[in-house]
Structure formats: C-alpha cells, structure tokens
Amino acid sequence: MIRWTDAWTWLVPLLAALLLGGATFMNPAAWLTAACAVALIGAVIAAVHHAEVVAHRVGEPFGTLVLALAITVIEVALIISMMLAGGPDKATLPRDTIFSAVMIITTGVVGVCLLVGGLHHHEQSFQLAGANSALAALVSLAGLVLVLPTFTTSAGEGIYTVSQLVFVALSSLATWGVFVFVQTVRHRDYFLPPANASDEDQHAAPPSNAQAWISFGLLLVALVSVVGLAKQLSPTIEAAVASAGAPKAVIGIAIAMLVLLPETWAALRAARADRLQTSMNLALGSALASIGLTIPAVVIAAVWLDLPLVLGLSAKDIALLGITLLVSAITLGTGRTNLMQGAVHLVLFAAFLFLSLVP
C-alpha cells in the first residue's frame, strides 16, 4: 500500500501524463509551455523516487540498470520520432544527441557527483574493475560511432555506407550486451559498493514485491511523461536556439539534458549519501546505453525508411571527446576520488557548453 503521505509519488506522474495527453491535442500557448516545464520537473523527481524504490528491492547493480535502460529506450523513441518528423534536417540529430549525452554524463554528471561527494565526505571510493570495464567499452563505442565516420572514404564525410552502418550497429549492440552480462552475471561484484563504503539502504527494510511493481509501473509513466513533455518543449527550444543565433547542435544538447535529468538527480543524491558506486553505475552505464541501444535502433530506422544519417563529429568535437575520455581514465583510474577530480570534469563540461555556443 502507498501511504497517503506519499500521494505525490503517484499523483505527479499521473498528472504529468494527463498534461502530456492534453498538450498533444491542444494548440501551443505560453501557459501550456510553462505548465509542461513544471510537470517535467515534477515527473523527474517522481521518476527518481520510484527508481530508488525499485533499486532497493532488486539491489545493485540491477537497480541502476533499470533506470538507465528505461530512459534510454524512451530516448531512442524520441530521437526516431523527431527524425521521421524532421526529414533531412534531422540527419545530424542522433549524432548531436548521443555526443551530447556522452559529454554531459562524463563531464557534467560525473563532475558534479565527484565535487558534491568530495565536499561532503572528503574522499570516496568505488570499484575500479567495474569502472575500467565501462570506460573501455565507452571509448571503443564512441570511437566506432562518432569518430571513425569522419575518416572513412566509402561515402561522404561523416557518413557510413549501409554495410558500415550495419557493422557498427551490431558491434554496438554486442558490446553493450557483453557489458550488461558482465555487470549483472559474470562479474557482478565489480559493480557493488566497496566493503568499507557506507550504504544507508542496507539498514532499511526493502519494499515488498507489490510496492516494487507499483513503483516500476509509475516509473515508466513518469519517464514517458518526461520524454513526451521534452518533445512538446522541443519547438520552443528550437525557436529559442534559432532566435539566439546558436548552432543547431545546441538542440541536441538541450534534448539530452532534459532526458538525462532523472539519472542526473539520482546519481547526485547517491553521491551525497556516500554511495559513489551507485553514481558511477548510473553515469557510465547510461553513457554506454546511450550508444549501445540508440545506434542499432537509429540504424534500423535509417536503413529501412531511407533516412539520411550523419554520425561523424567535427575536428573540434573529436578533440574534446578525446580529452574527456583521457581525463576520465586518469581521474577514475585509482578508485578513489576527491573534489579536485570533480572540478576538472566540470571545467571540461563548461568548455563543452561554451564551445557548442561559440564553435
């Protein structure tokens, strides 16, 4: 049973879903845009609450996988729907969104978690073996999907041929699948909190199966509402980007930020509670899922529906991605963190945002 004091946890997702349904069939207006923005924030908070309930029931690392997988699947649906609606103008949208998601996670989310954790607990620890596995997979996927298309010669710059797309899609899905097998079955202990780390959840009784299933259902409702409301707000975002004279890539950044809000908030809460392992599982797992699941789905849509698809990054973005992955390997290479590492990641995050606006 859900207590009356927790009524907001089910009222907010349902109200957000109702508002999304109304916004779909109503003419856009200023008050409706404001209401969608408020509902989106409320749905994010509710999604994090229900994800934590599910995570407490199933334990690590399955709990973080539930949130990362659910958000990524819905993100894929958002990208494909926008590609279908936008046609050739959206050829770079998957690239911009995936690149933005990877940069936001590896610089912004990781940075703020390390900084907040360092301020509250001085030093924190996590399992180095799990982080190394995730970083190795992330470097290979980012290189295959975002870097190599710029240098291949069988098609135009930044473009893969159909056979190359199929190869990259299968490689991405296989890499992500092996990582999930390692994370949840073969080497699950690599992704569990270190023995000396505090975990407040272990002192509380886990929720019942009924509570967990109810929270899982409400989590899906909240996530669908988050992505749906983000799509409703996308015309406003595009208009604001155009009026400001900013590059179109900023649209991908805005979409990625909106979609990643639930994971960011959940990772930040975990870091503040001295559960950095949970933060790392969420961040690195989400970055991998954003490539490993998005690319196969986008490739299927592009090949089947003959949609244009540009994946290769510019030289500036390749350099920024390379610096970020190199710094991540250094800062996360000891299994112990402090606020200095967080500050370095956040400087790179600021550089990513600034250079996106002023390329």
Rank of each mutant, 00 (worst) to 15 (best):
L288S: 08
A204R: 09
A210N: 11
L220G: 00
A246W: 15
A297C: 07
P235H: 11
L293D: 06
V298G: 02
A256Q: 02
A287N: 05
V226G: 01
E263H: 04
L305Y: 12
W304M: 10
V227P: 03
I295R: 00
L260Q: 07
A240I: 13
P296T: 03
A270D: 12
L233N: 06
S290G: 02
G228P: 04
V259P: 02
L229E: 10
Q277W: 01
F216T: 15
A297W: 06
I253E: 05
I295P: 01
K248C: 03
L284Q: 01
Q277M: 10
A283M: 10
G228H: 06
G245N: 07
A297K: 04
L284Y: 01
L268K: 01
V298N: 02
A205R: 11
A271P: 09
S234R: 14
I300E: 01
L219G: 09
M280T: 08
L282P: 02
T236N: 15
G245F: 04
A246Q: 12
L229K: 10
E238K: 13
S208G: 15
S225F: 01
L260M: 07
L261W: 11
V227R: 03
G312L: 09
A287F: 00
E238W: 06
A301L: 09
A249V: 13
R272N: 12
A249I: 14
V299A: 05
V310Y: 08
A239Q: 15
V303D: 09
V303E: 04
S225M: 03
S208P: 11
A271E: 10
V226S: 01
P207T: 10
L276K: 03
S286W: 00
G285T: 09
G285E: 04
A283C: 14
A287I: 00
M257F: 15
A244L: 13
G217I: 04
P262G: 08
D306V: 06
